[in-house]
Every structure is written in structure tokens, then in C-alpha cells.
Design a protein around this nucleic acid. Structure first.
Lengths: 343, 343
DNA sequence: TTGTATGCGTTATCAG
DNA sequence: CTGATAACGCATACAA
């Protein structure tokens, strides 16, 4: 059985009759080392099968070339695309990504934040758990100059980098689009609204759009899901569609909800978009597949991941920062497809 | 500006007039430390805001309590569920998960394997890149007793743990199901078959099922996608449906392909399942949403993740192993929904 | 351009 | 039950 004892720079040094510091420098192309030595060192390192121990390097420099990602779950299309964007960007700069799922639990988030801190990540990207209201567990990163970026589901009052879309404006645009299609009684599917999150913002946009166009709002037209699942969505949709006067349009705060609305409407014999126009949110893959194709609001997940990672990387380089942390807004667009197009 | 210098066990030790070794032990409930001391240490550690530096611990013990996950991408539903299963299981045992996406590139996979090794992960779970044929870059883990589990897309000849489904049997079952529904001319959508991967196995099952039931196979009935995307699927489906004698059934090796087949068929005015019965593979979320609901083969992603993680954890504990690495087969089932149900 | 020496924070060994 | 000390592998300040 071949028990490869790990090769260290010390092994290379003794083989080459050089000092470990020379090896260390040569391996990272330090300018003060001669071309010749660098070449020689790299060659034998390769030959001996040297693999740098990033733990040791990390301990030494108190930096690890890993970015911690703390999100509710990896299985939602938006979030897995976000991760993908982060991971690709990080990888390009030689950074790794460590992932933790809070499953929307506040307690899990607190403990994971601590764990991330313990592994000395170089930066943290977080999308808050649904249940999180207090964010003091993120203070440790700020206090220690570890770049912190909140993305998508962000706290209101925490002074750090944030990468978001304008949910209010998006909700407004979506609703206004329905109005332009001739809808006058527009329902709204939302979720976890009591936590004052991004869904609330979208709803604000919805309400203001109604107001602007002199459409009366009504409590019965707004259904608040506990969890964003297809079956919950179906239940909520049916509630909406079973009203004495059902809506002639629905703005759903997520594509899954929108899709369940489409299916429920079809099952009830209603035509989409003729009898009821529907628009979702996120531009999940399914929106292009469902029949009729779902109109939706674009939500640039991978791009948000990329930008978040870039902010982290930039701020690792220049640790000392003024106390100004910008908020990056990404554009969203109304993507008009079949489910809402009447004209 | 509050510059929290990190609290170390040394700080706790000097505050309490104890040795660092005592602190270290107390913190992990070592039996040789008095209850009283343990309590005292833990209390002041808490008060001082001590966060253990896992890097240092890792360097010392050459083990890191992290599991490396190397997969083609995180955005496929099967893989994100796999990750989720891994992450949850790992977290329960206090392990973290570090993720890398090969994007189906062999070169990326090689480099990432090296990087994982460099960060001294305690174990590795991998689903091979589509393009990978040679797997020698995983030898380093085996040689150093780092548990390695291949999952789903696994190499044929590598002697290590494997967690898979019986793709051959599943392909056979799927095809036979269509035959039982009365299909006599069954098309097949597959992908990247030249790399001798799991798709090939499913196709073998398909072919053998045809043979068993005396149905003739035909080259024109098998379409091989380069990449598994919806649009590619539509192209492939149309090829199949435009044959002089189109098939009356399709077994697609993935749900995305199956869904594109359904949509293409509907667009051509064919009824599903009456004119053409369709079955997919994976039981992706979309299969329950598409109209008609897609029959499919279950593919227990989260469970496979969980089991893979459990194997890793078990084998970290008892490092020395006989040279026997079991292959774990998970059950798949034919999930009959609307798209294939004729009787 | 290269070498020497030290410390990062923890744990394990050995001693008391 | 507790303490002193070495070691993990690397990177840097300082020296040559």
C-alpha cells in the first residue's frame, strides 16, 4: 500500500539544497528569485508531486482564499444560479466556495455564520433566512474586516455591501403591465410577508400601481403563502379563483406560484391570458416551458452571484475601507410571453 | 473602529491562569478535566467571544471537517438536490461542504481535485464530468486514505465507493412500461453517449427491452444530444417526430428532454399519451407541473447525497480499510403519470 | 538573490 | 487533574 507522505516545501528545499523560504517564494514567482531557480523549483515540485497545504498558508496569513456562502437552500433555481455565478467568478481568481444552507432557520444561520468565521473565510456572501430579523451575528465579519455582501434577501439597516434588485419597482412594473393588458381586478400571490422582506417590497409596488391607475385594492385579492411550493401555490391560486368575482389578472411574486396559478386556472376552464392574465417573477427555467409560456420579471441570478463575488474579491485586496458600502441595484425587465399577452 | 483581535485559547488561558492545553481539553469536554474547570472555561470562552480557529486545528491534525464536492454544475435539479442531501447530512456531524463545479470539463476537474486535496478535505464526493475518461487525478485521495465516493456518474474501473442507481434496469423498466401501454415503435433520447456513461446504460436497457418484446430497433429512433438543454431537446424531438413513420412512444433519458418531447408533440398536434406516450428520467420538479404530467423514473437525489455523505463520515472515523469498497445501489421506480398512461 | 528564524492557533505527548 | 512544549506547513521580517 502506497502511503504518500505529503511533500512539503521542506522536502523540496532539502532535495535542492535551498532554503524553504526560497522555495516558498519561487513557487509564487516572487520577483527577487532568479528565473533559473524558479524554474528548477517548480520543476522538482511538480516531479515530487507537491501540493501546497492551503491550511498552513491560511493559518500563517490569516486568509484562506475561500468565500463562504450562506443561503436558505441550494435547490431553488434562483439560488443555485446564484451559487453558480459566485463559484465561477471565485474560481477564476483561485478562490474556493464553501456553502451552507440555513433552510430558512434563524438558529442555523447564526451557528453557520460562526462556523464560517471559525474557518477564516476571506469573505461572506449571504442571502438571509426567511425567519431572520436580527442580523447581529454578521457583525463579527465587519469588525474583522472580512468583506460581507448581502444579496437578494438583505437586511434593511445593516451597513454593508448589498446586491439587489429594486423589488418595489419590479412589482410596480409587473402590475402595470397587467393593467396595460386590460386587467382591472388583479390578484396577488405573495409569501412570508410578515417578515418585511423582498416580497413585501414587491407587494408595495403592486399596491402603488393599482393606486396610480385608480384600481381599488382589496384584501381578498392578496394571498400570502407560508412556504413557496407548488402545492401551496395551487391552494392559494384556487382561493383566488374561487372568489365570487375572480380576478382577471394575477401578479405572482415567484414563478412557481405563477405556474400553479396557470395550472389552476386551466383546470377551472379559464383561458390564459384571455380570461386571466398571469405574470410571475424570477424567470425560472420552467417559465419558458409551461404552456402558455409564462410572462415574468427577470431576476439576474448568475449575474448577482458574479457581482457579489467580485465585490468580495475587490475588498479583500484593499482591506482598509471607508465606512461607505455601496448598494448595487441590478436591472429587472418585464419579460412578456404568452401568459399575459392580450394585445 | 473596533478591531477585534481574535481571541485564542491562549487569551483564555492567561485570563484564567491555566495552561492552553487545559483550555483546549476543557473546550472539548475531555474526561480528564474537572467539571468545574470545564464550566469555567466554557463560560469565559463564551464571554470573551472565542471562536475556535479551524485552520489551526486542521493543520495540526491534518483533517478539516470539510467534505469536498466536485460536480459538473449546481444548477441541475438532480445535482442541487444531491448537494442539499450532502450538506444537511454533513452539517449534522459538524462538517462543512466545499463545492466545485467542473462544468463538465476534464481539465477543470483535474485542477479542482488538486485544489481539494490542497485544502485537506476530510473526504470527497464526486460526480464525474461528462468529458472525463481518465480518473487518475483521484488516486491522490485513495493513496492518502481520504475517503472518496463517486456518485451517479461514476467510473467503471475505479476501486472506491460508488453510490448509483441501476441505470440499465431503469432504462429497461421505462421502456417495458411503454411497451405495456401498447407502444410498438419507441424512440429514445439520450446524451453524450460516446463517453460510455450512465446514458449508455439506460440505452442498453432500452435496447434489451425492445429485444425481449421482439420489437425491432432502429438507428433513426435514437437521437443523441450533445448538451442536455431544453432547446437541444426540442431539436432532437422534432427530428424524431418528423420521421416518415414517427414513434408512438418515447423514452427520454432525462426529464428536460422528455418535456421538450411533450411540447414538440403537442405543437405538432399529437396527443400525449394517446398518439405518443412519453416517459422521462429523474423526477425533476417540472415533471409534476408539465401538462400532461410526465411519467418518469425516480432518481433519489437527496438520498444519494445523504448516503454518500454517510459513507464519507463512516470512513473518516475508521481510516484503515480493507480493500473492499462497496457499491451502493439505490432503487428507482417507474412513476406512472399522465404522459404515458393509456390503460 | 538567497538564507535564518519566528510565529500563526491548535492539539498531542509527556511529565508532574 | 493540570502544565510545559513540540509540531503541523507555510510566509515573512530581517540578515547576509
Amino acid at each position: 500500500m502506497e502511503e504518500n507522505k505529503d511533500i512539503t516545501i521542506y522536502d523540496i528545499a532539502s532535495k535542492l539544497n535551498l532554503a524553504t523560504s526560497t522555495i516558498s517564494r519561487a513557487l509564487k514567482d516572487h520577483h527577487s528569485i532568479s528565473e533559473k531557480t524558479i524554474k528548477k523549483v517548480k520543476k522538482t515540485a511538480e516531479e515530487m508531486g507537491y501540493v501546497p497545504n492551503t491550511l498552513a498558508a491560511g493559518l500563517r496569513g490569516n486568509k484562506t482564499k475561500t468565500i463562504g456562502v450562506l443561503i436558505p437552500t441550494v435547490t431553488q433555481p434562483f439560488l443555485s444560479s446564484l451559487i453558480s455565478g459566485i463559484e465561477i467568478t471565485a474560481q477564476k481568481s483561485g478562490y474556493n466556495v464553501i456553502i451552507m444552507q440555513s433552510n430558512d432557520s434563524y438558529e442555523a444561520e447564526v451557528s453557520m455564520a460562526k462556523s464560517l468565521y471559525g474557518s477564516r473565510v476571506s469573505g461572506v456572501i449571504c442571502s438571509l433566512a426567511m425567519k431572520t430579523t436580527d442580523t447581529s451575528h454578521f457583525q463579527q465579519f465587519v469588525s474583522n474586516n472580512i468583506p460581507l455582501v448581502f444579496v437578494d434577501r438583505v437586511p434593511k439597516e445593516f451597513n454593508t455591501f448589498r446586491v439587489i434588485i429594486d423589488n418595489y419597482a419590479a412589482g410596480f412594473k409587473a402590475t402595470e403591465h397587467l393593467i396595460e393588458q386590460g386587467c382591472t381586478r388583479i390578484g396577488h400571490l405573495t409569501a412570508g410577508s410578515k417578515f418585511g422582506n423582498l416580497y413585501t417590497e414587491r407587494m408595495r409596488g403592486y399596491l402603488d400601481a393599482l393606486k396610480k391607475h385608480n384600481l381599488s385594492e382589496s384584501k381578498e385579492l392578496i394571498v400570502d403563502l407560508q412556504t413557496v411550493t407548488y402545492t401551496e401555490g395551487v391552494k392559494a391560486s384556487n382561493k383566488l379563483l374561487s372568489l365570487k368575482t375572480p380576478p382577471d389578472g394575477i401578479f405572482a411574486s415567484g414563478d412557481i406560484m405563477a405556474v400553479s396559478a396557470i395550472q389552476s386556472a386551466k383546470k377551472k376552464g379559464m383561458r390564459v391570458p384571455e380570461d386571466i392574465a398571469i405574470i410571475g417573477f424570477n424567470n425560472d427555467p420552467i417559465s419558458e416551458i409551461i404552456d402558455p409560456n409564462l410572462s415574468t420579471i427577470t431576476h439576474p441570478a448568475a449575474k448577482m452571484g458574479q457581482i457579489s463575488a467580485e465585490i468580495i474579491l475587490k475588498n479583500i485586496k484593499s482591506p482598509k475601507k471607508e465606512d461607505v458600502k455601496e448598494i448595487t441595484f441590478l436591472n429587472t425587465e418585464v419579460l412578456i410571453r404568452e401568459s399575459s399577452k392580450r394585445k
